[in-house]
Simulated scan of single mutants.
Amino acid sequence: MANLPPSLSMGTPFGGPSTSVGAPANKDRNLASAEQLVLDLSNPELRENALLELSKKRELFQDLAPLLWNSFGTIAALLQEIVSIYSVLAPPNLTPAQSNRVCNSLALLQCVASHSDTRMLFLKAHIPLYLYPFLNTTSKSRPFEYLRLTSLGVIGALVKVDDTEVISFLLSTEIIPLCLRTMEMGSELSKTVATFIVQKILLDDVGMDYICTTAERFFAVGRVLGNMVQSLVEQPSPRLLKHIIRCYLRLSDNPRACAALGSCLPDSLRDGTFSNCLREDQIARRWLQQLVHNVGVGRVPSHQGGGFEHML
């Protein structure tokens, strides 16, 4: 995903083809190195170094995800690392060293979530649930923020590939409230990734139906999006604003949601407040124009009961 930093990008293949003369030998060495480091994960005394080395070099190792998934005890070792810090989440006593170590484990789980051969196995094992306590934290200290961001990277890896089964699973685990929490109190980068996840859920018909089924769900999402827009008036962020606009635009595809947006869409999205912020992004400008048009022509008078208001 273009809006994630390199350390959290979810689109880079592992061990892409090389044209150098020594490519076969390098490939063999990389494989041997990866296999040894994966074996080291099962040894508590060697695990910390193995986590660090694998997370730093994961893009060099071809098919690291299947190796992690199929090697005996490896996923259990990664989950053990995650569970081990639950006790310091509340009250918040997480140290930078603890955060870094767990984030290295999460980076490896992100590899598994990104790979086509292991994604659904990862999902069916309900491994994302182990990350939710991290998304439910409220501390804004750097160790907690780094933990939230890396956890969001794993979920983002799942939703990046359009798959209704993935969306249905996430909706059944209450991912929306967790993302909304981060969208309200996280850093700009965490807010961006969380909003991207909500955007991908909305773009799936199952996700759209879920959010627009009840007035409470729609207004919960709409309230957070509106608050984010208000904060961006003071501190603009083009990439975050782009994701917010795309969420609003998708909501406008639903007749009742579109009618409700007629009264709750922030004025700053209609009056040119963000013209300079979006000056370099033609796609976002076009989305915003389409959104304003949709809301303008799709607004239904409240006495006709076309929006959500009558459901509250």
Rank of each mutant, 00 (worst) to 15 (best):
residue 105 S to A: 14
residue 107 A to H: 09
residue 99 S to F: 01
residue 245 I to M: 06
residue 4 L to K: 11
residue 251 L to Q: 07
residue 292 V to T: 02
residue 262 G to C: 01
residue 167 I to V: 12
residue 105 S to E: 05
residue 224 V to E: 02
residue 108 L to T: 01
residue 63 D to P: 03
residue 116 S to W: 09
residue 37 L to R: 00
residue 125 A to F: 05
residue 235 Q to A: 11
residue 269 L to D: 04
residue 260 A to S: 15
residue 91 P to D: 15
residue 230 Q to V: 06
residue 287 W to F: 07
residue 273 T to S: 11
residue 282 Q to W: 09
residue 211 I to E: 02
residue 18 S to H: 07
residue 17 P to N: 12
residue 189 L to A: 06
residue 117 D to K: 11
residue 254 N to W: 08
residue 96 P to W: 01
residue 266 P to C: 04
residue 38 V to K: 05
residue 228 M to N: 09
residue 91 P to M: 11
residue 133 P to W: 01
residue 52 L to A: 04
residue 258 C to T: 04
residue 77 A to E: 06
residue 3 N to S: 08
residue 61 F to V: 13
residue 111 C to D: 04
residue 97 A to K: 12
residue 114 S to E: 06
residue 216 E to K: 08
residue 260 A to I: 00
residue 276 N to M: 10
residue 102 V to H: 01
residue 195 T to Y: 03
residue 233 V to Q: 14
residue 17 P to I: 09
residue 103 C to W: 01
residue 107 A to E: 10
residue 152 L to A: 13
residue 191 K to L: 06
residue 259 A to P: 09
residue 219 F to E: 15
residue 88 V to Y: 09
residue 130 Y to I: 11
residue 139 S to L: 00
residue 203 L to V: 10
residue 267 D to P: 00
residue 269 L to T: 03
residue 238 P to Q: 14
residue 2 A to L: 15
residue 299 R to T: 08
residue 49 N to E: 09
residue 87 S to R: 11
residue 305 G to K: 05
residue 306 G to P: 07
residue 189 L to M: 09
residue 168 S to I: 08
residue 229 V to P: 01
residue 128 P to C: 09
residue 55 S to D: 03
residue 263 S to K: 13
residue 91 P to N: 13
residue 54 L to V: 04
residue 293 H to C: 02
residue 63 D to Q: 13
residue 272 G to K: 05
residue 160 K to N: 06
residue 72 F to E: 11
residue 18 S to Y: 06
residue 141 S to V: 15
residue 155 I to Y: 00
residue 297 V to Y: 15
residue 43 N to D: 10
residue 138 T to W: 11
residue 222 G to Q: 09
residue 245 I to D: 03
residue 260 A to H: 00
residue 74 T to N: 10
residue 260 A to C: 02
residue 50 A to D: 02
residue 156 G to Y: 04
residue 21 V to A: 11
residue 24 P to K: 05
residue 103 C to I: 01
residue 284 A to W: 00
residue 101 R to D: 10
residue 18 S to Q: 13
residue 27 K to R: 11
residue 265 L to M: 04
residue 265 L to N: 01
